[in-house]
Design a protein around this nucleic acid. Structure first.
Lengths: 288, 288
DNA sequence: AAACACATGAATCATTTGTTACATTCGAGG
DNA sequence: CCTCGAATGTAACAAATGATTCATGTGTTT
């Protein structure tokens, strides 16, 4: 499962038959250990391949590259998990002279795809799992998201409320914010969604909740976020944007995902939930 | 995000509060760009982090490592796609009986990626473009989304309001719904977000707006949707879900994209908008 | 205000890295 | 046998890297 899509590999295979024995030895090692090429120095590669450093240098030229660095670069890019976003961004900026809107459109799509992939990455699955566990076993679940983060917070609450009544959405309406937190303790959980620049009120609420022993699930943009400081579980969301404000697509996806895991853990039947909800709603003629 | 399971990251987060400002700057960069740490030299890291090379060296010691190489090693291991990292990943997945959860997690990611790609498809770009044009030239922009669709509707309004004051979010609070639509005519536009099963109230509002000659931009799941019936522009959103309720990720992405195009069309400077908004917010100490 | 600890920056050092010029080896053809 | 030429090894070089030392700032305590 290595980096097979490096174009250098094709160059290597094609040129292989015409190479001298020592160069072939070096080439074979590179084909067998592409990851090492991206990570180690030329001398290390040469050592592991049982070849002199100069041979690797010569191989680079023999393949048509100017230097070992040129041969190495594609392998390093392939190692990156967060794709070549920067290069693509630069390209998009350059094209902005021609068709501003369409270039931006394409860039936004690419960025949003990376936001999703980055936010729902396998590395974070365990955190999702544990967070869902915590939320499942807690008495009440409070949800807090202000400003832009209110959108995913709202959806979390709205969806959670469809299969359970222990979720409460915190908001600032009518200045009743603090009242909503009264009586919370370590049997409760708080889902806080906050991104830089962090809202003071959110941080205050998190600190208060933390002092009350509440289990906190932070959905934020950074492990060092003040929202994550007192959190038991921190889900890091990617919120890059091609426009002027942070994207909240990743946060929304995370919320939906968390809810889905929560439903599974609670042992509820998903289909049944929808049925019930729709039946109740149609009774009050909410549907078309 | 990226390779989170590097134990160094925990060390970094734990030690962070006790670090000096410059060391924190370096530490933050490492947390934000773990891949780069594995790939680039200390001097490159320092340069990108806006810090002197010596600072990164000092950071290594401050964290308890003997050298930068020691701090770097875990990141390099995490980058390898084969080798010990792969085994560890498998182990993590196999642990406990969370196969079901993990399978669902992976499916959700895949589905959400398709939702984004499908909603922000090239075929729809023209509709985006024209819709943005309509919204840009209209007197007022009303936004309507009920139930789950309220999340993207809210974000649309919230973001729009940052660079213009002609946007109004329609909601059902206090039963004042109809009052908000009073006085609209063909100089106004309505962004309606609605998915099956369509809320009756939404459809009623669309019909009323349509009779008033309002330009309607429909963000919905189907060209035949009742919300799209009277619409001038219809953006079709993909809202597949691996769980029990429709995904709204695509709708949110669409809203963000629409706003971005709107900003471009209005000729406003994106950076300036953010500056102004942040300045105003920090003045009322909303930030941390 | 003085003294102090500490953080930061600049400069320096030894080491490592990639390249290249040169020497050596090896095999084929006269 | 010798020579030529390519392939390979060796060594030397400049550039870059990481660490360390020293000097300068910066804020705090007495």
């Amino acid at each position: 499962m290595q980096s097979r899509d490096v174009q250098t590999i094709r160059v290597l295979v094609d040129a292989f038959p015409g190479l001298s024995p020592e160069l072939q030895k070096a080439a074979k090692f590179i084909l067998d250990h592409p990851d090492d090429v991206g990570l180690n120095s030329m001398r290390k590669i040469a050592g592991q391949a049982g070849v002199k450093p100069a041979t690797v240098s010569r191989l680079s030229k023999a393949l048509g590259y100017d230097s070992y660095e040129q041969l190495r670069e594609p392998f390093r890019q392939a190692l990156r998990k967060s794709g070549p976003g920067f290069a693509r961004r630069l390209q998009a900026v350059q094209r902005r002279g021609n068709d501003v809107s369409h270039a931006m459109f394409e860039e936004m799509r690419a960025v949003e795809l990376e936001n999703i992939a980055g936010s729902l990455s396998d590395e974070q699955f365990e955190v999702f799992e544990e967070a869902a566990e915590t939320l499942c076993s807690s008495r009440r679940v409070y949800v807090l998201g202000l400003r832009g983060a209110f959108a995913p917070a709202f959806l979390f609450h709205y969806t959670h409320q469809m299969f359970g009544d222990k979720c409460q959405l915190l908001d600032t309406r009518a200045g009743m914010f603090a009242d909503q937190l009264r009586g919370i303790d370590d049997r409760d959980a708080l889902v806080v969604i906050s991104f830089s620049p962090y809202t003071q009120l959110t941080i205050d609420a998190v600190n208060y909740a933390s002092e009350s022993g509440v289990q906190i699930v932070a959905i934020t943009d950074n492990l060092l976020s003040p929202a994550a400081h007192a959190a038991k579980h921190t889900i890091v969301v990617r919120n890059e944007s091609a426009s002027f404000y942070h994207s909240l697509t990743g946060a929304l996806a995370v919320c939906q995902c968390l809810i889905a895991l929560l439903v599974v853990k609670s042992g509820r039947d998903s289909v049944k939930i929808v049925r019930e909800a729709e039946k109740q709603l149609s009774r009050i003629s909410a549907y078309w």
